[in-house]
């Protein structure tokens, strides 16, 4: 059991004995081992930052927790409506419900329907949860302002934006809902210093409100600013032998 800042609080994420490997059927069924026997708990108010060399499986672990990748063994339990849901075994309906209300994910890529205006993209997660469109709009406006996205861009679809602008849209999309659990995969990758600070502030504010976070940050400054604990994924690396 690892230390957690908010002792007494049940962890928001509980990863037990997790294992992940890929099987590439169309390339001679190669097995690509990633990690095994991985245990991790994240309490409310904690920001656990994954560390380890590139290619070690930090993103894979995060995606497995989110249910984007299928676990090869073990379980990932996430607090949802006052109970734990095992993401690795829950029905797709359940996983969808957990993602809608309890667990957010910010990737470094913006993947959205083309030709939709930025503001509509940002309020979309709220509308999906039945928030009043006017209310959603005003929240989006203040978020986009704090991220210093030029107001002229709000009504445009983000396809033609710069990498940093797209990233900020993505962050706005994720922070507009106050998810109790938030997974951050390089959310500051292509941001300048000022905007990085804004994101750090957003993350800290969410932590203060009791969100549990897992992050992957290349940027040392950001990492130092938000991490409450480091988690080395490489210590759970699976050997080629055990993968077979």
């Amino acid at each position: 059991m690892q230390q957690s800042k908010h002792n007494g609080h049940a962890p928001s994420i509980r990863v037990t004995n997790l294992k992940k490997q890929f099987t590439l059927h169309n390339q001679g069924s190669i097995e690509i081992p990633v990690f095994e026997s991985l245990n991790l708990e994240v309490a409310p108010g904690e920001c656990v930052v994954f560390v380890g060399d590139s290619g070690i499986g930090k993103s894979t672990l995060m995606r497995t927790i989110y249910g984007n990748y299928l676990a090869s063994g073990g379980c990932v339990e996430v607090q949802h409506d006052g109970a734990y849901v095992d993401i690795t075994k829950a029905s797709p309906h359940m996983v969808a419900a957990v993602r809608r209300r309890s667990m957010g994910y910010v990737s470094q890529f913006l993947r959205v329907i083309p030709r939709i205006s930025t503001i509509d993209l940002v309020i979309e997660p709220l509308l999906g949860n039945g928030v009043d469109p006017e209310e959603a709009r005003s929240r989006a406006v203040s978020l986009l302002r704090s991220l210093r996205l030029p107001e002229a861009l709000w009504s445009l679809p983000p396809a033609t934006f710069s990498g940093g602008e797209q990233q900020r849209v993505n962050i706005a999309r994720s922070f507009i809902r106050e998810y109790p659990v938030l997974l951050l995969d390089e959310p500051t990758a292509s941001l300048d210093a000022t905007n990085r600070e804004t994101v750090v502030a957003l993350i800290k504010a969410a932590l203060d409100k009791g969100a549990a976070m897992i992050g992957i940050f290349h940027d040392q400054d950001v990492r130092d600013a938000v991490a409450t604990r480091h988690f080395d994924v490489s210590s759970f690396k699976m050997d080629m032998e055990s993968a077979a």
Binding site: N26, N68, L70, P92, V95
Partner: peptide, 22 residues
């Protein structure tokens, strides 16, 4: 194969799905 859309497309398990996605 069945599953959540992003899971099926990002981590396809069946050889045929892997072929389709690739």
């Amino acid at each position: 194969e069945t599953g959540l859309t992003d899971q099926v497309l990002d981590d396809p398990q069946h050889p045929y799905t892997q072929l389709l996605v690739s």
